[in-house]
Design a protein around this nucleic acid. Structure first.
Length: 571
DNA sequence: GCCGTTTTCGGCCCGACTGTTTTCAGTCG
């Protein structure tokens, strides 16, 4: 799929055009095209075949031609030519927070600095001062930006950001002048990683809140300290912004700061057509200058003739069009989950016994779990030999006779071996209730090999689900190269479920592939891949992905009650 | 560069904070 590559190129073109001080609307057109291509679930190559490129919003004749050229030749002449005009170093400066096209240009041209390393050296030596527009404070900010860029690479995993956010919110909640407060931004939309934490609060007396916020023990640096908006960097090196508005504006501010930017732009465009104006204070009738909504988010959407859009899908991926028709999906919730499909016991590399896991799962309100220890080849994770698996099955049968109102299903996480065969033979697989297959080695094989391996595993009549289908580990390794569209079609045709692995460093499938799975007609299972008691709480992170991928209760296998679940899966 | 219930030309989303150039440009979200 070349979608992401094209999205990135369009974004870079926008950067270059910005430096060249081209028409701002032309630049915006490229950014919008980048965003839209990046969030497509369909492969652009397929769209080209159907001659439907220009049906994509923001793609007209010109950009369609550029996309076509890139897909067919692997290059885009316009971009190649543009790159020659602007030095690489100048573009790199724009990655520094606080540095935009203007500053990047000044650093490169007027200061004659060619790369970030050089910039650090000269700045620290006090050798850049005399230029128009750049003084001590600006230099300080640039250095801080570089520092931030290097240390954090910009993004923090959601679960870490949520912890920090909750701590700060709980601290601020103690202030009596705050009537409402919650996190907004990409954190509220539950993106898998976030760049910063946005918090919104309602109060008629913002000053005390601002002062308290910048003096919290979590604060390492204060970036801004204004009347109603302040920004800090925490000790964990993540930026937190706090905005305070009047209670009558809380819903508007929350919607505004939750985003996404693309979702908001679309809302404002709609508003303009209705002679309305939206900002963080409310929705206004332009002519009468009268406020018609703002206190709560529901009112904001209602004033535009839309049904309420859940934060997780506010990405301008088609949700607004459905909200107009009042036909948004009813997204799956944590309370819909009836079981956990992926758990490891102490028999392989987990640290709980099967009865302990069962007890914890029952306490969570589940009706069933699948115990899925590793198979024999995965020696490093204590994979079970056939004899050991048979022993475990006997124990589970005995356990099920003792416990009431709960069922432990016999399963395994079976390795898909290098040659595409499975680590157990059919004789033993058929004794299991639910079989998960997964790749744990040979990530470097070719796209064709990996795709073929996964599909051949799905064709086995005992394999019920593919675990962590793309194999990524955030911060460790990227997805392996598979043809996900092809894999999903095979999943549909073989009645094999595909997992959302809820482990916070995996979240695999991701949101976009999850939406593609739904559109393909594939059943999704959510598994925590638990190895301990704490891991069993990670189901919520899988739910986050499912919701961002537009999944409803009916799309998720383990929302089914035990009997329906057993009927639904491949026999 | 895109797009059309005013339009195939002339529009295209909105506001806070900082630093610096004492009235505003640059950046960000």
């Amino acid at each position: 799929m070349k979608n992401q590559e094209i999205a990135e190129i369009f974004n870079k073109i926008a950067d270059i055009l910005e430096i060249k001080e081209e028409n701002i609307f032309r630049i915006r057109a490229y950014r919008r095209a980048s965003q839209n291509i990046g969030s497509l679930t369909k492969d652009v190559e397929d769209i080209i075949k159907e001659e439907k490129l220009e049906d994509i919003p923001g793609i007209g004749k010109d950009l369609a031609k550029k996309i076509d050229e890139y897909v067919k030749t692997g290059k885009m002449k316009f971009y190649e030519d543009l790159k020659k005009e602007i030095p690489k170093g100048m573009l790199a400066f724009m990655d520094i927070p606080g540095v935009g096209p203007k500053t990047a240009k000044v650093i490169y041209e007027d200061l004659k600095i060619k790369n970030i390393e050089d910039l650090i050296v000269k700045a620290k030596a006090g050798k850049i001062k005399k230029v128009f527009g750049i003084k001590d404070k600006t230099i300080e900010n640039i250095l801080r930006g570089i520092d931030f860029l290097k240390k954090s690479e910009g993004r923090t995993p959601l679960y870490i950001a949520m912890k920090i956010s909750n701590e700060i919110i709980n601290e601020l909640k103690k202030l009596k002048e705050i009537s409402q407060i919650e996190a907004a931004g990409s954190l509220r939309r539950r993106k898998e990683t976030v760049r910063d934490i946005d918090i919104v609060s309602a109060s008629t007396k913002p000053k005390g809140i601002m002062d308290k916020f910048v003096s919290l023990p979590q604060v390492k640096e204060i970036l801004a300290h204004g009347q109603t908006k302040s920004s800090i960097i925490t000790k964990e090196e993540i930026q937190v912004d706090l905005r305070v508005v009047e209670p009558e504006c809380y819903g508007a501010a929350l919607a505004y700061l939750t985003g996404s930017k693309e979702h908001n732009v679309k809302l404002r465009e709609m508003a303009v057509k209705k002679h309305l104006k939206i900002n963080e204070y409310g929705v206004f009738k332009v002519k009468a200058d009268r406020k018609i909504a703002g206190k709560d988010e529901e009112g904001i959407y209602k004033s535009l003739g839309l049904s309420y859009v859940p934060p997780e899908i506010r990405e301008n991926r088609g949700e607004i069009e459905l909200a107009i028709k009042d036909s948004l999906p009813k997204l799956v919730e944590l309370k819909d989950m009836k079981g956990d499909l992926h758990l490891h016991s102490e028999a392989s590399d987990g640290n709980l016994s099967v009865p302990e896991i069962a007890e914890l799962a029952k306490a969570k309100g589940y009706e069933y779990i699948v115990v899925t220890d590793h198979s024999k080849t995965l020696v490093i994770a204590g994979g079970l030999k056939e004899k050991e698996l048979v022993l475990q099955m006997e124990k589970i049968d005995a356990l099920n006779k003792r416990i009431k109102g709960f069922r432990v299903l016999k399963g395994a996480e079976v390795d898909i071996l290098a040659d595409g065969t499975l680590d157990y033979n059919d004789g033993i697989l058929k004794e299991l209730d639910f079989v998960i297959a997964a790749i744990h080695a040979g990530f470097k094989q070719s796209r064709e090999q990996l795709t073929k391996k996964i599909i051949s595993a799905m064709e086995n009549k005992y394999v019920n689900m593919i675990a962590h289908p793309t194999g990524r580990l955030m911060g460790v390794r990227d997805s392996y190269d598979i043809d996900i569209a092809k894999v999903l079609k095979a999943a549909r045709d073989t009645n094999t479920a595909v997992e959302i692995n809820a482990y916070p460093d995996r979240l695999d499938l991701n949101d976009i592939n999850c939406k593609l799975a739904k559109e393909t007609g594939v059943m999704i299972g959510i598994g925590t891949d638990s190895h301990s008691k704490e891991h069993m709480d990670n189901m919520i992170f899988g739910i986050n992905v499912a919701r961002r991928g537009w999944l409803e209760k009916k799309d998720v296998l383990n929302t089914l009650k035990i009997n329906d679940f057993l009927k639904k899966i491949k026999k």
